[in-house]
């Protein structure tokens, strides 16, 4: 009987403690522990803006020689762009860490905490003084957009959504004119 209990307990313990296969999941921390995030962390982990450029993924935004990549490390970007015009931080409900918003006049960068780093979750272009790396800006036409990015997009209302390397480039087109350009990470989704 003791053997039977021992075997059953051992089986239970093994089930509990082992990885239960390769699908190891982590939970309980902040958004950086969201399932899948550890696998999707990418880009910009170097210590300069230049290195951020070499490891960029998806569509990127460039400004004054600095490449901003979704899910990339914010610190080399900050170093390259300098102090923002405005800074805002929001603690996520319940979890530790801050979502930070850096406003540089014509564009805005939002970050999420990833371990010790802050990674870019969103880039928003706010006026026509800045443009995407593919030369699309606020005021461009729908045709300019499809010429630059093709027609392989999904439409959400008036938004054209392009997916690339696990990120989304969302271009809002109203009355045939681009009115908003947003780059989004998908790491925080689900």
């Amino acid at each position: 009987m003791k053997k039977l209990i021992g075997i059953l307990l051992a089986a239970g313990m093994i089930l509990a403690m082992s990885g239960c296969g390769n699908d190891e999941k982590v939970i309980g921390g902040d958004v950086s522990n969201a399932p899948g995030s550890s696998q999707q962390t990418a880009g910009g982990s170097g210590d300069s803006a230049g290195s951020a450029q070499t490891s960029a993924k998806g569509y990127v935004f460039r400004h004054n020689g600095v490449t901003v990549s979704v899910d990339g490390d914010m610190s080399p970007v900050l170093e390259g762009l300098g102090e923002p015009v405005n800074y805002f931080e929001a603690a996520s409900c319940a979890f530790e860490g801050l979502d930070k918003t850096y406003t540089y006049g014509s564009f805005e960068i939002v970050t999420y905490p990833q371990g010790e780093k802050d990674c870019v979750s969103t880039i928003i272009l706010k006026d026509d003084t800045v443009s995407t790396a593919e030369n699309i800006s606020i005021g461009s036409s729908r045709e300019d957009v499809t010429n630059a990015y093709g027609t392989d997009y999904t439409e959400q209302g008036s938004m054209l959504v392009y997916h690339k390397d696990g990120m989304r480039l969302c271009i809002l087109v109203e009355n045939d004119t681009v009115t908003s350009i947003q780059y989004f990470s998908t790491v925080l989704e689900e």
């Binding site: 918003t101 406003t103 959400q156 938004m159 009115t179 908003s180």
Partner: peptide, 12 residues
Amino acid sequence: AGSIPDPVPLAE
């Protein structure tokens, strides 16, 4: 409360 970021235009 300081300066709050502008609202981001939504698709829907």
